[in-house]
Design a protein around this nucleic acid. Sequence first.
RNA 1: GUGGAUGUAGCUCAGUUGGCAGAGCCCCUGGUUGUGGUCCAGGUGGUCGUGGGUUCAAGUCCCAUCAUCCACCCCA
Length: 424
Amino acid sequence: MNIKYRRLKGTRDIMLEEIERWHWCEARWTEVLARYGYGEIRTPVIEPTDLFLRSVGEGTDIVDKEMYTFETKGGESLTLRPEMTASVVRAYLENGLIRQPGTIKFYYMAPMFRHDRPQAGRYRQFHQVGLEAIGSGSPVLDAEVIQTAMALFEAVDARGLMVKVNSIGCPECKPAYVKDLRVFLQENIESVPVNMRSRIDVNPLRMYDAKDEGVQELLAGFKPITDSICDACREHYEIVLATLRELDVPHEEDPTLVRGLDYYCRTTFEITATAGRKQSSLCGGGRYDYLVEQCGGPATPAIGFSIGIERTLLHLNDDPVDPQRSRQSQVDIYVACKGLDAQRYGFVSADILRGYCRVEVDTSDRSLKAQAKSANLRRARFLLTVGEDEIRNDNLQMKNLDTGEQKPVARSQLLAAVREVLEG
RNA sequence: GUGGAUGUAGCUCAGUUGGCAGAGCCCCUGGUUGUGGUCCAGGUGGUCGUGGGUUCAAGUCCCAUCAUCCACCCCA
């Protein structure tokens, strides 16, 4: 077959058995998030490009090479969101939620777009479940947010995970460290691969992300950022760690954990899968106490994280779903029809039942044998058969697919008969 | 952006030194004049990713190109 249109690179079709898995996870996540006090937020997938340029920050990979950006006929630059935090902050300000008392807590489960090279667990359109808690700078909230992330993983039985936490300081102490780091890197520039050197000027902290052994060795000889943060940040970090211990959230400190986005400050964290060579980073998050202000609002502390849904699913089960082998949606009653008149009779009969259970009327006009086979594949519990005799007698043959027992049922008695057997 | 692997039926894949394009699964029909899960028989389905080249002859060899997957970079 020469199919004319194919899905875009890095995108996927989610359906049949796989979408059942998504629904299962989504239902559990929604429940957990509600228990932690989060309400859903849905924002547009397109935003002004500037929103991401200024929040995520130029010099990050996301902004420099991964955004789906286009221009409207009017000359306005728009971008498909590469992440959600900026949009939530924008919505928070735009809808006047600054006037709401207490901490605003939003969650989302939504598609994001990054023009990256696809590979296992990495897509151009991918989905994140995440949350943003805006309005509180308490370190206790940091710990609760990290615990919430773990609760989301536990809710879908994800195991073998490690929480890594770090503090990257605030505008009081971070710049001095960055400056020292830059000087240190310049002095040892021969140890830095050529293609990474530009990072020294743009965003030296991100050198910690490099997996290059030489760079790792070099940075091991430099003072960790946690030794350089100011007293206020230090105290904040200590309380986060202490609270995590009190909450029994297993975690380890990782002073090399800096995050790729500019807006983070103080607490940053990441949750990774300890086994498997695939994309092991399942969750990333941190505090962003200056983003709201930067977006034009009053100084407002906030924290959030996002979990990659595809990656989490990949971590849960390595078996890919084969569309060929996966079932269509289940039904309770399957109606097999011999001929067009029988289909009409079948539909009217199904209409009686639909207020009560799931019914599929077969309009394929295949052999009754083939239709019965489909009934079985759909895991129907009862097969109703309609042919010329049934139309004439105003009844349906009703077969119990577990026992094989079959008997005619008058249409006027159909609902009562079905209720009796399905409830009994 | 860099590197590696793979493209043959709807799916998973065989295809020998270059010589008639195959199997399993799925699907359809029949065995059962109107009935499922097992079984048996038959059948539908292919521009061999695409375009060039070599050759009497190319799925097979050569070149190019596209797509997919994997890895790097980075990230969810």
